[in-house]
């Protein structure tokens, strides 16, 4: 079917497909970050519940190193802040892609509407 379409429309269709792939990739990344944020929040909650003299370890590869609760809590909070920021950036990126997608879709609709009807 695409062989019958003018090159400009074929190009727009390809762009649309590319945008769709980009949107998918951003959505996957966003879901991953959201998962990590949830995990960090749960860990922070668990740390909060523990007593101040609780024995805490930080996982480094397969090893567990003894860590201070306060220091580790601070580290997790910083990590969460960074992930929150990344999530915002990704959301903006997703918005931009979606708006470009809608714009292109509209252009394509108009272009397809202006095409002469198929003879037959």
């Amino acid at each position: 079917m695409s062989a019958e379409l003018p090159p400009q429309i074929q190009n727009q269709l390809a762009q649309l497909q590319q945008l769709q792939q980009q949107a998918q990739a951003v959505m996957t990344q966003k879901a991953q970050i959201e998962g990590l944020i949830r995990e960090t929040e749960a860990a922070l909650k668990e740390l909060e519940k523990s007593s101040d003299d609780a024995v805490i370890y930080k996982n480094v590869g397969e090893l567990l190193f003894r860590a201070e609760k306060a220091k580790l809590t601070e580290e997790l909070k910083e990590r969460k802040d960074m992930m929150d920021l990344r999530l915002k950036t990704m959301a903006k990126q997703e918005e931009r892609i979606q708006s470009r997608f809608a714009q292109l879709q509209e252009q394509l609709k108009i272009a397809l509407g202006q095409m002469p009807p198929k003879g037959g």
Partner: peptide, 14 residues
């Protein structure tokens, strides 16, 4: 008596 549990985000607690 002591068990070390992984609580996620690279943290374990006894």
């Amino acid at each position: 008596e002591k068990v070390v549990l992984n609580i996620g985000a690279g943290v374990s607690i006894e």
